[in-house]
Nucleic acid binder design. Structure first.
Lengths: 290, 290
DNA sequence: ATTGTTTTGAAATTTTTGATACAGCTTTTC
DNA sequence: GAAAAGCTGTATCAAAAATTTCAAAACAAT
């Protein structure tokens, strides 16, 4: 038998908090219900049981068991509570933003998120609009070849970028950072090539070498880096810096990801006429259709 | 027959305003219904017809006629509208991130950033502290083997995670999503293994298959997904959902990255005693020192 | 007053929704 | 490895809610 759960009398803590707190005492289906409810709190619970269960990917009886376990006498009772909570919350202007639970992780997570959000804001504010637009234009030029590369950590971001651009347009690839792997490919790189490099501190020599070689051959270099600028900046045509400090032993790449996704989004919109049929074709191929 | 009333399509003015405007065209009992609704807008309308009618001092049919007259097809339709209006209003403060229209370059970047920030906030708020802590504990258990995997886009995140954890602790690797590449490796997977999977919508069957196979062999599955939960959730021990919608043709993985980095940070702190010398050793090796 | 029109609610009907019993499956425990 | 406990979904049923019907009441205009 599991530990009992306090009935939802007239308590202060919102139901959401209680659910978060008791999360690990739930069964798998109950967790799914809980996740759905918390992700659209409290509106997900205001529909019918059938709708709620279906959205959570569970059966109606499981949904019922979930609310019963929460201490309610039935689904209507549960909904009534949600409505009352909502009304109370809406009437008190800023009663929201309750202090997150104690525990070890939550505060750390919240603090981390706050730092990351600060980074994103600072990053956006320090990007020159003209620079961003210029990069979008460059990456939207279908006659050019685009190569993505990065360091040991940022390499994953380069892959992320490549996996998206590859679908939007052609002539896109990823270059591994190790010199042995790209030396001979450099013969192909020329004036119509664009190298998009990701490089943040503990700047990596091999990535720098790659970009310098490419630049010497006439390629256009786009650099996504930190505010202290990777040495690649010397040979780069465009530089987009992102803030990376976080309350961690590691730097955060969220700002770089933001820029990457924003670029993908902007280029997709710009090339929409050709990107749309292309994306549809890719989808068909993935599904094994002719 | 009285003058027609515009149906409640996608309009700007709230229902309340329309009711006030049309007030003098209502019959006496309709007015009573209108007054009740406006006095406790919109909660008075969220109960049952019977309750609503009784509180307004009219009969159920009259209440029905009232909502029909407002242009709704029935009482459930009416309530649905109220809920949606309420949700939109409640979400506006932060997640104003409606379909932010075109806009060029910089404005688009700012809008994108705002949406991403909203996602991060929502993600953190909906993570159960216990769940997060449990995952940290799991990944800090040095006796276990950790395997990261992901789909065509999220695979990059898995690599990102792997590249960090690899330095903090041992027994960490990355598994390619294609079945041909992992089938035979499954022989090694057992009870002391942990599979951390990244999977967001357009959930990928091969990743699901990998996790199901691993789970069947007794491995513990940790899933980072979107709020709609990948089917992998069925076999996952722990699920960390992140909000992913963005004003783009693509979803945003920023929330997943945030969780990843927060996990890396937390585990690094937790294993600091052993992680520190290990990180220093890695650094020496990179520099070619003995 | 009387007739035609509109409004209204009681009761009957239909539809929807919530709840339960039970059997299969999974996980845990011994 | 077998038995027990627990979890979950299908099928079914009961309850409640929404909707329609219809006749009485209120009202307006002759």
């Amino acid at each position: 038998m599991r530990n009992d759960i306090v009935p939802p009398s007239a308590e202060q803590p919102s139901l959401a908090e209680r659910i978060r707190h008791d999360m690990d005492s739930f069964t798998p289906s109950e967790k799914r219900a809980a996740h759905l409810l918390l992700s659209h709190y409290p509106f997900a619970g205001l529909d019918t049981v059938a709708e709620f269960a279906s959205r959570a990917g569970i059966s109606a009886p499981s949904a019922l068991r979930f609310v019963t376990r929460l201490g309610f006498s039935g689904f209507p009772d549960f909904q009534k509570h949600l409505r009352e909570e909502l009304e109370a919350q809406l009437l008190s202007p800023l009663a929201k933003s309750g202090p997150v639970e104690p525990g070890q992780g939550a505060p750390a997570l919240a603090a981390f998120a706050q730092a990351v959000i600060g980074n994103l804001t600072a990053t956006v504010e320090n990007i020159a609009p003209a620079e961003f637009d210029a990069v979008v234009a460059l990456l939207s030029d279908q006659r050019r070849n685009i190569h993505f590369t990065g360091g040991r950590f940022t390499g994953a971001l380069a892959r992320y970028a490549e996996s998206h651009f590859r679908i939007v347009r052609s002539h896109v690839d990823f270059i591994e950072g190790q010199p042995a792997l790209w030396r001979d490919r450099m013969i192909e790189i020329g004036r119509k090539d664009v190298v998009v490099a990701f490089d943040i501190r503990r700047y990596q020599e091999d990535v720098t070498a790659l970009c310098e070689t490419a630049a010497r051959q006439g390629a256009t270099i786009v650099l996504l880096t930190d505010p202290w600028l990777s040495p690649i900046a010397r040979v780069a045509r465009h530089v987009l810096p992102a803030h990376i400090t976080a309350p961690s032993n590691w730097d955060s790449s969220a700002g770089l990801l933001l820029l990457t996704e924003a670029l993908v989004s902007a280029v997709t919109k710009r090339l929409w006429e050709t990107a749309k049929p292309r994306m549809e074709a890719v989808e068909r191929l993935r599904n094994g259709e002719p």
